[in-house]
Amino acid sequence: MGGAVTAHLHIDSTSLVHRLPAHAKLLGLLALVLTVVAIPAGAWGPLAGAVILGAAVLASTRVPARHTLPRLLVDVPFVVFALALPFLARGEEIALGPLRLSAAGLVAGGTLLAKATTGALAGVAFAVTTRPQDLVLALQRLRVPDPLVLIVSFMVRYLSVVGDDLARMRVALVSRGFRPRSPAAWPVLAASAGALFIRTYERGERVHLAMVSRGYAGHLPAVEAPVTEPAHWATALLPTGCALLLLLWAVAP
């Protein structure tokens, strides 16, 4: 319902990470993930270090685990895939009790698990400390093209509106005795999805009309960038620095 999106991701607090400018955090996150991805497969020491680093970043937000753990469910598909890899991959096999596992699959799965988990930890740290509106501003400050910024901004703004539309349609269906229990209900669900699409499309047209009426001519008004102090950048890029050391450790002869 209203505000569900923002309510689910961002947790208000005053930690150091919360106070960092969003664009510095976003760049820091991107640089960290790219660096961790560059760590070679099977470099277990550095990969374990990366996971600990990700956990440390998340811990530094001081957001209680009861808020962060549910958000880390985003990592589940990677965990499942990583666990499946040793059974699916071909090549040299090693015996582990009754199981026969692919050696290459074990290495690939373990590496994927470490990298994906690090990314999820850092991503959740960004999400819980950054308000959606700050994310939009951050993209704008990083000179992401206006149409992309607008798409993200409208998604942030209208997801709850569309969600409310959907909830009202569902209530209206249920109120008339509709029970989506069998494939016979699919045509009705498809029609609802179609109606929702048309409504959303029409709303898009009305929003555009309102924008044009207030002088919109294809460009967002420029945002005045607040001063980002060197200390902010240093803090935001600190995890990347640590990850670089891990990478060096992994590739050092």
């Binding site: 959606p132 509106q133 939009v136 501003l137 901004s153 409208f154 942030v156 703004r157 209208y158 509106v161 709303r203 009305r206 929003v207 009309l209 309102a210 924008m211 009426s213 207030r214 002088g215 919109y216 001519a217 008004p221 420029a222």
Partner: peptide, 27 residues
């Protein structure tokens, strides 16, 4: 000519109230 449309959700599209009020004059 300042038009206030019927559904405020159509008119308020920026992330915060302040940004939205600033949208027109910034343009």
């Amino acid at each position: 000519v300042g038009i206030v449309f019927q559904d405020p959700d159509d008119q308020l599209f920026m992330p915060t109230v302040r940004d939205d009020v600033a949208f027109g004059p910034a343009n």
